[in-house]
């Protein structure tokens, strides 16, 4: 079988405007790939299209995930199949308790996979262990989802969800932005703890900094809605030194 995620010739846009102009990208199981690019280059659009947000229209190309046609699946089916998106801007859910949200999500995915659901007691045990590992205060389980969370707390809450849902592919959309160095290390540890032959990640970032802690197998540069260059981890350092300007001309 080929790579876990196979994107070929993907074009997509919104309101008739093309944002992704032809993405080709393979992420094999067990690997972490970084996607870097300037603001507005289409990184979040790529992550939303992969997660199935319906306001983006896919106009061409294909995406296979674990051999299946990802684009034919509903967002919840993609999640059940093991795809997870850590949102650049996590959504607030007033009136929904975080613990209830996490348990509902976990059990929905377990149900879809034919696994038994977790009861409240066992869920809380698991959730408390994970919050501790992520140095999150216990009361974050009691509060409403992302409501009144600081930027860093929201990002950690995304990583907590990833840790609980155990995806095969995690897409992290600028999970590092707005984090101080300690929070960054915690987030990186959370991702590194998942690493293994069954786990892959697409780490979208603006900065080389995160990639010092989550060392990628490959780095891709996204400009103008397509990947203009790919390389090893050293490419990130090169970009840090010289910026995207030269690449934009090459694109």
């Amino acid at each position: 079988m080929g790579a876990l995620l196979q994107i070929a010739g993907l074009t997509a846009g919104i309101d008739g405007r093309e944002i992704l102009t032809g993405i080709d990208l393979d992420v094999p199981a067990g690997e972490v790939h970084a996607v870097m690019g300037p603001n507005g280059s289409g990184k979040s659009t790529l992550s939303y299209v992969l997660a199935g947000r319906e306001d983006y229209a896919v106009t061409g190309g294909s995406v296979r995930f674990g051999g299946a046609d990802l684009l034919a699946m509903a967002p919840e089916e993609r999640a059940a199949a093991g795809l997870f998106l850590a949102f650049q801007y996590p959504v607030e859910l007033p009136g929904v308790g975080n613990a209830n949200f996490l348990r509902t999500a976990l059990n929905a995915i377990r149900r879809a996979r034919g696994e038994p659901e977790l009861d409240a007691v066992n869920f809380l045990k698991l959730a408390r262990a994970e919050t501790k590992r992520l140095s999150m205060p216990d009361d974050m389980l009691k509060r409403n989802v992302n409501v009144g969370f600081s930027g860093g707390e929201k990002k950690r809450n995304e990583v907590l969800q990833m840790a609980l849902l155990r995806p095969r592919l995690a897409i992290l959309d600028e999970t590092d932005s707005g984090l101080d160095i300690d929070a960054l290390k915690i987030v990186a540890d959370g991702v590194n703890a998942q690493r293994g032959p069954e786990f892959a990640a697409l780490v979208i970032t603006h900065y080389q900094r995160l990639l010092d802690y989550i060392v990628p197998d490959r780095v891709h540069v996204l400009i103008g809605g397509r990947i203009v260059r790919s390389g090893g981890p050293e490419l990130a350092h090169e970009l840090e030194a010289s910026g995207y300007a030269g690449l934009a001309e090459a694109a």
Binding site: G52, E76, R78, L93, V96, F101
Partner: peptide
């Protein structure tokens, strides 16, 4: 969409938000 991206089926997501 946030709820669905976490595996919660659409009808259940809507029910949760109404409850909220």
């Amino acid at each position: 969409f946030y709820l669905r991206s976490r595996g919660v089926p659409e009808a259940q997501a809507r029910a949760m938000l109404v409850r909220a």
